[in-house]
Design a protein around this nucleic acid. Structure first.
Lengths: 194, 194
DNA sequence: CTACTATGATGTCAACGACAACATTACTGG
DNA sequence: CCAGTAATGTTGTCGTTGACATCATAGTAG
């Protein structure tokens, strides 16, 4: 009989993976440490060795989410080629795409208090900020975005993208139009340049 | 001895009021039906006569929130006088102000599924949409906003305002700059007009 | 006065997060 | 190689919660 080993071996990763699945399929409310433990085949208290409390698990999920979004944005920008407007659009579309696939995760990420929160969370968020920040600075250098504090423009763009991404959740009016809105935003931002 | 009457009289309102307070001070996670019952001095099951489940209470809070935000936006637009840019700015500032005072409520409102959800919720949200929609249409008529589908422009503006409002939560980077970002948005939107 | 209905109370259940105490395995220095 | 210690998992328990069923009270309409 295949005895289950006393030590799981990859419990933390297994919990996170399963949690991401549950989060996607049933939302953050339905995430239960005990349930995750059951699905991983361990005792109800085992998760506590890896996550001090429920919030710590959510923070870890948010951190991983930021890291993944940063990757996807970076990849999208690269794939978009040299044209700046296309690159900016790709960033927005990546946001929307991410939010479409994982609305609950998106919510979790931006609901988490990034400053003062988890270490890994801040790292993931930081990477995303830098990635977008570099794109914005590039646009300002080449005169395709309005001049001014680049940090502030980045903040504005990211807030806008997040706002648009927020409407893709089922049950929100205008859910299907997100990509079109991104086009409008790019037009608006780049119109202010030159 | 001041006997408590068997019937509370205004339980629903009392629960909502206390819930709004708790929501503001401790966030949605901390909202417990039993706790509200205790604070209202009724039995732990009494709230169920007014809210079928926890989610129903949250929906009611969100609905009231939308109604209040709609009022505040309408009032701000009126108070802003005749200049369109000032009116548009007032709308954004009202959003930010609301989110600053009640971040958890704001989150609740836009996390709630507006379509298909509660009746009262849809009503409150609808009023807000109409209020902002009229302002957008006005701007397009007077040529101060770019032409095009007014519904789409409204969606874009509301999404942007919501995105900016989302960063005022403590723990979010750039929390203090929300009002400035609203100025930028107004400039961006109205620059596309003429 | 008597239903009827709205509203609140009591009692109970299963699930959960958190914690403490204990068990087993892995690792590390001697 | 081995002893001791750290890492990881288990068992048991507690208080809280949302949900539900059942009963109590009060206001209302016939």
């Amino acid at each position: 009989m295949t005895e289950r080993p006393y030590h799981h071996g990859h419990l933390r990763d297994a919990l996170l993976a399963e949690a991401e699945r549950t989060l996607r399929e049933q939302g953050a409310e339905q995430l239960s440490l005990r349930d995750l433990a059951r699905q991983a085949g361990v005792s109800h208290a085992a998760p506590r060795r890896h996550f001090a409390d429920r919030q710590a698990l959510l923070d870890a999920l948010a951190g991983a989410g930021f890291a993944r979004l940063a990757d996807e944005v970076a990849a999208a920008v690269t794939a978009a080629g040299p044209d700046f407007r296309a690159r900016l659009r790709a960033t927005g579309v990546a946001y929307v795409r991410f939010a479409t696939t994982d609305p609950a995760l998106m919510e979790l990420m931006f609901a988490a208090k990034i400053a003062g929160g988890d270490e890994e969370l801040a790292a993931g968020a930081g990477r995303l900020f830098i990635t977008v920040g570099e794109l914005i600075s590039e646009g300002q250098r080449t005169g395709q975005l309005p001049a001014g504090d680049p940090e502030r423009l980045r903040l504005l763009f990211m807030a806008t993208a997040r706002g648009i991404a927020g409407i893709v959740t089922p049950g929100q009016p205008g859910a299907g139009q997100a990509d079109g809105l991104i086009d409008d935003v790019v037009a608006l931002f780049t119109a202010g340049g030159r």
